[in-house]
């Protein structure tokens, strides 16, 4: 499938421009980035062999990804709204058809759906929101405020060693349940508040980040110049006992252009 004899076009993004333009020598290979226009749309590309960029070296991949992003940013600045492509999207030549013609054919065949996608993200930017919780702080908070838990703790002090052990088991089980209920409640509350302050929100997979427990990982689509309501909600959540927020962006709308 990877025919190294062939030629390809690495595609960074799609924009609504019907003109052949150069963005300079800013490709991830240090070569020229330019537009391939057709029917009111264009692909922002560089010329490459018909083989994916691939490396086991983290540093190289990082550089490619940062360069990919830099080109998308440059296109965003130049053309306004763009549809960012996933890394390593390469369109190659086929029997008798050049890579460039295949790019044009794709743009015109998919024109309707590409335009729909452009409309969805027009004038909007993406932000990343990750909410973390601190199990120690939440557990402490609950054992201070929950009367049932406080009651068991009182019981433990007055019981024999054996009984105290059983009560402690019960306490731990109860605490775990209560923590779960509390975090689920907060999850729904935060999600609701964040959703109300943005155009669109997507739930992403949570991931491990150091010792912190991520309870929520969101991508938010927000009108340009309209991030204040979201920022205010996050400020409040970030100030709550036991919870903290990571807020990144603005990003090109990578999370809102995938096929649903």
């Amino acid at each position: 499938m990877t025919d190294n004899e062939g030629t390809g076009r690495y595609v960074y993004c799609i924009a609504q421009v019907d003109e052949k333009l150069s963005l300079g020598r800013i490709s991830l290979a240090g070569t020229e980035v330019y537009t391939i226009p057709t029917g009111g749309l264009c692909a922002i590309v560089h010329d490459c062999p018909a083989a994916p960029y691939s490396s086991d070296e983290e540093e190289i991949v990082h550089q490619w990804v940062v360069s990919h992003q830099a080109v998308v940013e440059a296109a965003l600045k130049e053309f306004g709204t763009v549809l960012p492509m996933r890394f390593d999207t390469i369109i190659r030549d086929t029997d008798g058809v050049s890579a460039e013609d295949n790019v044009r054919r794709w743009l015109s065949d998919d024109s309707d759906v590409l335009r729909q996608k452009l409309e969805r993200v027009r004038g909007k930017e993406e932000y990343g929101v990750q909410v973390f919780w601190d199990p120690t702080a939440i557990t402490r908070l609950l054992s201070e405020t929950n009367p049932e838990i406080a009651g068991i703790e009182e019981d433990i002090r007055s019981k024999s060693k054996g009984l105290a052990y059983m009560y402690r088991q019960r306490l731990e089980k109860l605490l775990k349940q209560e923590v779960e209920t509390e975090v689920e409640k907060r999850f729904r509350d935060f999600h609701h508040r964040i959703k109300a302050s943005v155009s669109e929100v997507r739930l992403e997979r949570t991931k491990k980040e150091g010792d912190k427990q991520m309870m929520m990982n969101l991508s938010c689509l927000v009108p340009m110049e309209g991030v204040r309501p979201l920022a205010d909600e996050l400020e409040e959540i970030d100030h709550m006992d036991g919870f903290s927020v990571r807020f990144t962006g603005p990003w090109p709308p990578y999370s809102f252009v995938t096929w649903e």
Partner: peptide, 26 residues
């Protein structure tokens, strides 16, 4: 950034055109 550029972004509909995307070699 890696999450977005490697795992998200638009994927070309492969019925329409031949592409080398989606091969997780990296």
């Amino acid at each position: 950034l890696l999450d977005r550029v490697l795992d998200k972004g638009l994927i070309i509909n492969a019925d329409v055109i031949i592409t080398l995307s989606g091969i997780p070699l990296i």
